[in-house]
Amino acid sequence: MDTRKPALPSLPADPAALEAFIDAGAALSGLTVDPAYRAGIKIHINAVTNAAKAVLAFETKDDAEPGPVFRP
């Protein structure tokens, strides 16, 4: 059995790879990213990635029910 923990999310160390991620993510969602937006976007991708580290490192059971509200 592979007992290795999955790697936590982290930003690409290579600046060019982060630029490529932004380009690909924007294209996938049909967004046009003006060069002037990129510095701000990087700051916030960094912030959400840091938040995701804590979130994805937290163990939840397979049957843990997500919390959004829905009442049929």
Partner: peptide, 19 residues
């Protein structure tokens, strides 16, 4: 725009943590 690039799996895990 940064939020639009978040993988869905991250958000669903966050919703599990909520419960």
């Amino acid at each position: 725009i940064a939020g639009a690039m978040i993988p869905a799996a991250w958000t669903i895990q966050a919703q599990k943590i909520r419960r």
